[in-house]
Design a protein around this nucleic acid. Structure first.
Lengths: 219, 219
DNA sequence: GACAAAAGTGAACTGATATTCATTTGAAAA
DNA sequence: TTTTCAAATGAATATCAGTTCACTTTTGTC
């Protein structure tokens, strides 16, 4: 009879796969996807380079898998809060606060997920990730409008603004110095969330004195 | 007597340099810095690959130069408006509107400047670029606070939020479909600017019922 | 026109990584 | 125990863009 894969082996294979994914995830969390070189992943996972390719067809696929796992966790946390049975604005505040706090405490990972230079395959995953954020935020805003808690507004655009404001204020050149966030930066997080919520309340579609700035576009 | 560079030659050299920079800029505006490969730049500029290196020591330097030229123009436009002699909030609205409108009409270039994956040298330039944005916005907010037009707030954080909100809402996965912006997207621009200004008015440092969400960080 | 120096050329080189594959190791069937 | 095939190995290879440099062409001086 031909060779037949036994349970012991299946288990070891699964272990290896997990080990590789974990090694990759750890490297990504340390230095981003770029820093997770196949040789390093293999060493950290305790296997040979070639072995990686028995589990994943390419670096891109490995990284995608890592991205999916990590981002799924983040999305679930936020989606969980968004689905609670409470007033929309309360949920929104908590979602934003959680988003920001987690980004701070996992800054390097947040950078990898949201901002790091990556190639096409990962960009696709990132797009999904960011779209989900947008949908969660927009959904809560829709709820709040439906509840009558806030004035109607273009919730998609507002959600996009929020999605950009929070990471930018926490990661990258405009963020506070990293050491200022070492305690989780609750103060900063609160300020940012406050900014976003204030924008939501700021008064529906009403446009005040129309600016004439849009003519200055060419130059 | 030794060789002496003549005016004709100097002029041709300057022309070549400009030609190379222009070719590079055009390629960047089409496909970002990554797409501007040295071979392509050379072809487009009508010179040989090696010639590029008689004008610029490396691709990095060439790209930096392009980045500086392009970003300087943008920063000057905004700084000019910011320096006008008008109420701070008027200037702020015009600055934001201009920033957003220009980002829309030069979407691909804006992407290269603000969001495209680039390597270290360019990241440095980008950091400067974004810091200047932050300073311009924060300065206007400071002015508005000084004028008493808005309640005191952490202007640096607010500026960072604005710097993130506008590009995110206009470029990338959360932006409206590109064709929706083909007319310059004045409607969308207005909504985004409105969002930011509303946040500014939204009420100083006042923190409402403190969220308990910050405990959800680990998981 | 002859010589020297600069400018221009583009094929070959380099370095950094991802990927392959001939070979070895280890586990299952006979 | 022997046979057989999956799994693992890691040195060798492939790739890809940036960079170099031996050579050609153009320009300036005498």
């Amino acid at each position: 009879m031909a060779y037949r894969r036994t349970d012991t082996v299946s288990a070891r294979l699964a272990d290896n796969r997990r080990g590789i994914l974990n090694a990759a995830r750890e490297l990504v969390a340390q230095g981003g996807f770029g820093a997770a070189q196949m040789t390093d992943v293999a060493r950290r996972a305790g296997v040979a380079t070639g072995t990686l390719y028995r589990y994943f067809p390419s670096k891109e696929e490995l990284c995608r898998q890592v991205f999916r796992e990590v981002s799924a966790r983040e999305m679930n946390v936020l989606a969980g809060i968004a689905a609670e049975d409470r007033p929309a604005l309360d949920r929104l505040r908590d979602v934003l606060t959680t988003f920001a706090s987690r980004a701070v405490s996992g800054r390097r990972l947040a950078y990898a997920l949201l901002a790091e230079p990556v190639d096409d395959g990962l960009t696709e995953e990132r797009t999904r990730f960011r779209r989900v954020h947008g949908e969660i935020f927009a959904g809560l805003l829709d709820d709040a409008v439906a509840e009558g808690t806030i004035a109607p507004l273009n919730t998609k655009i507002a959600a996009a603004c929020i999605s950009g404001a929070i990471p930018t204020a926490l990661i990258g050149p405009l963020a506070p110095q990293s050491h200022e966030l070492d305690d989780g930066g609750p103060k900063v997080v609160d300020e940012i969330v406050h900014f976003c919520l204030a924008a939501i309340h700021g008064g529906g579609t009403g446009h005040k004195t129309k600016a004439k700035a849009e003519q200055r576009v060419s130059a």
